[in-house]
Nucleic acid binder design. Sequence first.
DNA 1: GTTATAAATGACTCATTGGTCACTTATTGC
DNA 2: GCAATAAGTGACCAATGAGTCATTTATAAC
Lengths: 216, 216
Amino acid sequence: MSVRERPLRWQRRADARPQELLDAALAVFVERGYAATRLDEIARRAGVAKATLYRYYENKLELFKAVVRHSLVASLDEWATRPPGKAVGARERLVSLLTAFMERVAGSPLSGIPKLVVAEAGNIPEVARFYHDEVIMKARAIVVGALAEGAAHGEFRPVDAEYAWRIIVAPMLFSIIWKHSFQACEAQPLDFRRHLDAQLDLLFNGLAVNTKKKVR
Amino acid sequence: MSVRERPLRWQRRADARPQELLDAALAVFVERGYAATRLDEIARRAGVAKATLYRYYENKLELFKAVVRHSLVASLDEWATRPPGKAVGARERLVSLLTAFMERVAGSPLSGIPKLVVAEAGNIPEVARFYHDEVIMKARAIVVGALAEGAAHGEFRPVDAEYAWRIIVAPMLFSIIWKHSFQACEAQPLDFRRHLDAQLDLLFNGLAVNTKKKVR
DNA sequence: GTTATAAATGACTCATTGGTCACTTATTGC
DNA sequence: GCAATAAGTGACCAATGAGTCATTTATAAC
């Protein structure tokens, strides 16, 4: 529809702009944090002037909130409309869930959101609360539900689900935090698949030597 | 030695100041992040004027580095001089390690450092590298060592230690990040002991139902 | 074409804050 | 007591960067 081959210095693209600005803003916010992010830098990466940002967002804080809200809402929509594959039991539900997280989130720009929210919780508690309520509590419910179902059907040992859910979620958070903060310190990038496999192996079988029946 | 009952407006305490300033700085940096932290705020919490900070630290960045360096060096010293109780096997070594972390770090101001380092990795990579090399790699070595020893002695199943160590460390990180970023969203504070118990239970036994021998 | 209008911008302002400095006050040595 | 010295300070400066606005330019309507 619109010219896209030669990025003119001047271009009017009111439809595409908002998303472009959000994309650029997400990248810079994740890299630098809220306070250290310069609006000029976001504008530069989006290929516009700083003043253009203000045509679409009230101010820096509103832009920030829009970045988080938009990213999360889009992601939650995705999970709602395309839930992880039909599961035959609690174990498969957990595997699907963690696998889907790795496939959908870990490799995408979205993976920067948790780091960002965690880092800014002290400055922008409103965003932390939103993330807590809309993302964490949903994840918690799913995991606790799977643990309860698994225990009820004799598929899992009974565990302290109210605390175990965090143990199960933690490695997911760790992997994306690693990517955004310590990847640069290492020669090899983190292999998300292998990371997940290591978790699933430990999660279901544990470390203890099992002289009997291996659930496979 | 020095007057401490009535906190005069003017007091010369060249010996106690550095630590007081570091303590105040750590608290504010953890709460706000580097860029959002105002030197006036640190000074206020330490009960001094902003200019006093400059008698002890070159500038904001040097203060920040001193906070991280000092905290970590002190902690590493502590671990070096008072290692977790003598362990009879790999399993007990892991238990001691994780328990010691919870007891020494989780409840202390030190627990804010990881959040801080993670958040500022993009702005101050030097600090991220220091943390990576001096803390993370040491933890990794210990955990990988325990896994290897456990496997060699038939105490543990063999696992992908090079990735499994992160799975084991992740819940520790999660617990302190939770405390500093999402505690405020919840009615009940996180029970570190219960969190650790939940992890140990899962770590050693896994979720799978074990019809035979329960390693206790 | 011509005009209307909405997108986009560069140049500006102004509040904030890291950093400095001349000066004040506590402490130490004699 | 009385310097001498070092700790501590308030008031200031300069740079930075969020936010504004008059103006320019692309697009749409006719």
